[in-house]
Design a protein around this nucleic acid. Structure first.
Length: 672
DNA sequence: TCTCACACCTTTGAAGTGG
DNA sequence: CCACTTCAAAGGTGTGAGA
């Protein structure tokens, strides 16, 4: 039935639906989720699909059937949309202006000042502080999907030396990228705005073969969580929905398998109720140990005193860290961080109104300066580290530890940019993108039924078996957004759930897709790549399936394009069908335009990138988009810089060349 | 640097109880 | 039937020894 695993090549054997019956709910439950793509990780980060399976995928009968049906549906939908005024909530032409407030920011800031470390284990660990956000400015009736992903913050590996984090070399190849879709997604703007969006169940692991859907990270590497607001009433619509990406520099962290910095350890112990047992003021081990130490010392000092006479009172908060949140022994304790959304709402809001911490202040001030400093090119620096800093396209100023001499550094506007994988291409570039290599034909099959991603793949993906030129992966729900940088053609998928598959399931079962998805999620029912049902929610499944590579997206990547060329533009809608008509882009280029909005609003201390969590470099931005820069900043203090038309044109020309090359390259292998 | 077992803690939900 | 309490299991922590 299934193709045998290719020894040493396949991390798992997925079920690849290739007939109509495979897309039924029964098939999904009985065998394996069609949400899973027929791709698997290899030890070197590439993805391969069994040859026989690929042939099945290329079965012209089934493929054509699916394509025809999807095309028809899409055409009908488009037609009806044209003929009749929007009636549904989703098609309602309403504007929104999402703003995202990072909850418990003070906590993040505290951690950030000490150089936040996030423990990752094989079995998965939660983030602490948990990533929580409050959304405002959403359209109340429109549906949104909120998700978080974690991307490499730079291209370096770190070590903790002399009580500080230092660059210790080039980054290891990046782990497969996964996204965490909030289990409540999709929900109306009203619902999202009525509560704090909590991502505390997001788990981190260093287990590359993790099957729980945890976010896989490299130890001793720096990461930046990103928050995405997607206006879509259905997860299936992720690929062509409006994305807004928010990056909070405070949430940057270094992944570790064991804490290196005692400050961080103490902070976590003091703030995480689960670590209460280690607090100095508790009855846990730490106190006992401390007591023992005190007793021993006392014993040795008095040389004869009984241990029983030692003081029972612990050292209390004597060892508390500067700026550490007070120990919540007064009732706030137990649900402290699970309720942080509620409990800290006041705190968080208040924090922003209070005099910000020095670093936070710096952040705001520098955010504005960052754009002006963007004229600085990465060649200004010879130091690798500084080079990396210059290459950061983050629009944000990093809040390094107070002791960090780089604390005054600021960064370029955020770009999510993908590059070729150095380890695959041997180009030796700083990027360490994963390259999933699977036949372009397959990706077409997967995404064509929606008629959306097909062009993306066709134009931008250059994945040939065993010869990966770019990384491509289907996204959680077939989400496939491509990124074309001047340094190469890349794509960044985020999950491996083929759109077609999901749609099929929906269609055949007669249930609304989102209902099915969330029925599964709410029941904790997920079908594993092995056909088993896993007790983690759909969102995890999505994450698991997120086989996107990193092309994905270090938050900032060194780019061939000088930093000062990076344009800034407002959020745009990913239009799979309109894009071809855009000025300055070839008709077949559907690479999503990207924009950056430099957020300097104090209430929105983050930076947004329009488009998808899937990387979308600015280089590929249509002129019309490039010039429509706007800022969310109501105060006008922020400065989203426009980039000259000439610069953009240069980039566009470069992209066009690339796309042409890709097309010709891919056409050679494409099936008809 | 990583993994694992461990103790300690919180959270969750089933079972029991009473009105 | 509902609300409340109790309790055990599950799960989240950092620690420290060993690889």
């Amino acid at each position: 039935m299934r193709d045998p695993l290719v020894p040493g090549d396949m991390a798992f054997q997925p079920f690849l639906p290739n007939t109509a019956s495979d897309f039924t709910l029964d098939a999904m439950l009985a065998r394996q989720s069609p949400f899973f793509p027929a791709i698997a990780l290899t030890s070197h980060g590439s993805l391969h699909m069994p040859v026989a399976q690929r042939h099945r995928m290329l079965d012209p009968v089934n493929a054509e059937t699916i394509l025809r049906k999807a095309s028809l549906e899409q055409r009908n939908a488009t037609q009806s949309a044209k003929l009749s005024p929007p009636k549904t909530l989703e098609t309602e032409a309403t504007e929104d202006d999402p703003k995202v407030h990072l909850e418990a920011r003070h906590l993040w800031t505290q951690f950030h000042k000490s150089g936040t470390e996030m423990v990752i284990t094989k079995s998965g660990r939660r983030m602490f502080p948990p990533f929580k956000a409050r959304c405002t400015g959403l359209h109340q009736r429109a549906k949104y999907i909120l998700l978080v992903d974690i991307v490499a913050a730079d291209d370096f590996r770190y070590k903790f030396h002399n009580s500080r984090w230092m660059v210790s070399g080039k980054a290891d190849p990046e782990m497969p990228k996964r996204m965490y879709i909030h289990p409540d997604s999709p929900a109306s703007g009203e619902q999202w705005m009525s509560k704090v969006v909590n991502f505390h169940k997001l788990k981190l692991t260093n287990n590359i073969s993790d099957k729980h859907g945890f976010t896989i990270l490299n130890s001793m590497h720096k990461y930046q969580p990103r928050f995405h607001v997607v206006r879509a009433n259905d997860i299936l619509k992720l690929p062509y929905s409006t994305f807004r990406t928010y990056v909070f520099s405070e949430t940057e962290f270094i992944a570790v398998t064991a804490y290196q910095n005692d400050k961080i350890t103490q902070l976590k112990i003091d703030n995480n109720p689960f670590a209460k047992g280690f607090r100095d003021t508790g009855n846990g081990r730490r106190e006992k140990k401390k007591q023992l130490g005190i007793n021993i010392q006392k014993f040795s000092e008095t040389s004869g005193d009984s241990l029983d006479e030692a003081p029972l009172k612990s050292a209390g908060n004597a060892t508390s860290i500067e700026g550490c949140q007070s120990d919540n022994e007064s009732g706030q304790e137990s649900k402290h961080w699970n309720n942080v959304g509620q409990d800290l709402r006041k705190t968080s809001t208040t924090t922003e109104e209070l005099t910000p911490e020095p670093n936070v202040t710096t952040f705001h001030d520098k955010a504005d300066r960052a754009s002006t400093d963007s004229l600085r090119t990465e060649t200004d620096s010879e130091d690798p580290k500084e080079d990396h800093i210059n290459s950061i396209t983050g629009g944000m100023t990093r809040c390094f530890g107070a002791e960090d001499p780089r604390a005054t550094e600021h960064f370029q506007p955020l770009t999510v940019e993908t590059d070729q994988s150095a380890h695959i291409t041997g180009l030796g570039r700083s990027s360490f993108s994963h390259c999933y290599s699977y036949p372009p034909d397959w990706t077409r099959y997967i995404l064509n039924p929606l008629g959306v991603a097909h062009r993306l793949l066709h134009n931008a993906q250059v994945n040939m078996q065993g010869e990966t030129l770019s990384s491509v992966a289907a996204t959680a729900m077939g989400h496939m957004l491509m990124a074309v940088s001047s340094g190469g053609v890349c794509s960044m998928g985020t999950a491996g759930i083929p759109v077609s598959s999901v749609q099929r399931v929906s269609g055949t079962s007669g249930l609304p897709l989102n209902f099915q998805q969330h029925a599964m999620a709410s029941q904790g029912l997920t079908v594993s790549p092995f056909g088993a049902i896993f007790p983690y929610p759909y969102s995890h499944l999505a994450a698991t399936a997120a086989l996107s590579t990193t092309a994905s997206t270090p938050v900032h990547r060194r780019s061939v394009t000088p930093v000062h060329r990076r344009p800034v533009r407002p959020p745009t809608r990913f239009r799979p069908y309109l894009i071809s008509n855009r000025v300055g882009l070839p008709d077949n280029c559907s690479t999503p335009p990207t924009s950056i909005r430099l957020m300097t609003d104090r209430d929105v201390n983050c930076h947004t990138i329009a488009n998808s969590p899937i990387a979308a470099p600015l280089h590929c931005m249509p002129m019309s988009e490039v010039n429509s820069v706007s800022s969310l900043q109501s105060s006008g203090a922020s400065a989203a810089k426009r980039v000259s038309s000439k610069d953009c044109m240069d980039q566009l020309q470069c992209i066009q060349q690339l796309v042409r090359g890709i097309d010709s390259y891919q056409d050679r292998d494409s099936y008809s």
